[in-house]
Each structure stands twice: as C-alpha cells, then as structure tokens.
Write a protein that binds this DNA or RNA. Structure first.
Length: 201
DNA sequence: AAGAGGATGGCCT
DNA sequence: GGCCATCCTCTTC
C-alpha cells in the first residue's frame, strides 16, 4: 500500500488534522491507526513550537509538508508531528494517540506492564510503541522506502469526528483544535471527553 | 475518579 | 533558571 501523497499535507492544517484520523502510521512491522490528533498553526499560534520563529529544534516544521517533526520533552519523552502547508509555513499536526493494529507482540515485549489499549494512548506512548526517537526527526512520511510512513485508512464518518480544546497547553487554550474519534477507547485519557457541564442548583 | 508529585533533559529568556 | 504539546505511581475521595 502506498503512503499518503505529499499533496495531502500541503493544505491548511485544520483540513489536514481531521483527515488523519483513521490513517495508519507504520514503522517496520508495527502499525498504529490514528484516533487522536491536534493542529498547531505555526507562526500564528502561541501554543506552537514555531510561534517565535525557526530554531534548530523546530526547523522541520518550516520545511516541506509530510515530514516528521520529532521533539524530546520532559526529559524522557518523544512526540511526533507532521509538517503541513508549503515550505516556509510551520503548521503541524501532533499525533496524539492510536490503536496498535500490527506488531502487537513487539510492543508487548517492549512494554510488558501496559495493557494493549494503552500502548499508543498518548503522544509519548505512541512514540514508544513505534520506536520513534530523535533519529526519525525529518523522516518523509510520504515516501515508500521511509522508515516511518503514513498510509490511508478506512474513512471515518464526519459525525464520528469530535473536536475540543488541545491538551496540556496554557496558550490559546480556547482553540478547539484537538480532533478524535468518538468513543474510541485508545483516545488519550487525560481529556477523553468534553468536560461535562454541571447543572447548578 | 481525580489530584499530587517525581523523574529528567533540552530549549529559550 | 524556568518552563515544558508527558507518564507513572501513589494517595484520597
């Protein structure tokens, strides 16, 4: 199966992000079906790593669409984004969670205490499951012979796509740029559901 | 079910 | 020197 074409990512990030739900991220024999993503709008988005311009760390975000921006955080975790839009723009989609659909045994050996549902439930866990580290920063997700690729998956019906505020950020917390598949158990647990509105008495 | 706290390193002011 | 696009474990309800 061929990866998603470069042009898929050469669009506004708010169009790309929901379209990635249901797509397959593959590394070697391990494959993850994406169930949760977040959009970051480069220079226009105070929550984006690219908001204050290009640095050595975020350079991939400014490059061609469809390439992986991998960053290291909290002293122990990696997270992976896909650069979107034409060269010079720095928007990206953070891949937050998914369901391991191939290579389950490999992941199980790597994470013996975790339940299968949790293997890729969260951005750092997703990287752990797929073995994504610094070395994959800049990988072309649209190239057939790339070590990390994004493939089309079964279409997710529009009515199953939920949106809400992004997780764990202080700036621009009001923008509902997190997208996930309704009711999917592999969506990260921290804000799995829209906050329930309490009735006041 | 929800909150607190620790682990731990690189990036940016 | 402070701040993280996190996760795990432990405590308390």
């Amino acid at each position: 199966m061929k990866p998603l074409p470069r042009g898929f990512f050469d669009r506004p990030v708010l169009e790309v992000a929901p379209g990635l739900l249901g797509c397959i991220l593959r590394s070697g024999d391990i494959a993850v079906r994406l169930t949760e993503v977040e959009a970051y709008d480069g220079g226009n988005d105070p929550a984006s790593h690219a908001f204050r311009g290009m640095t050595a760390r975020n350079a991939v975000m400014f490059g061609p669409p469809g390439h992986a921006y991998v960053y290291f955080t909290y002293g122990m975790h990696f997270c992976v984004n896909v650069a979107c839009g034409p060269v010079g723009t720095a928007s990206a989609v953070l891949l937050r969670a998914g369901e391991v659909i191939a290579g389950n045994d490999i992941v199980a050996a790597r994470r013996p205490t975790a339940k299968p549902r949790d293997y890729a439930r969260g951005p750092a866990r997703l990287c752990l499951a797929l073995g994504i580290g610094r070395d994959l920063n800049g990988a072309d997700l649209t190239a057939s012979r790339s070590p990390l690729r994004l493939h089309p998956g079964a279409r997710v019906p529009d009515e199953a796509v939920m949106t809400g505020p992004r997780v764990g950020i202080a700036a621009a917390a009001d923008r509902p740029w997190r997208f996930w598949i309704a009711g999917d158990p592999t969506v990260s647990p921290y804000r799995a559901h829209v906050r329930r509105v309490r009735s006041r008495s």
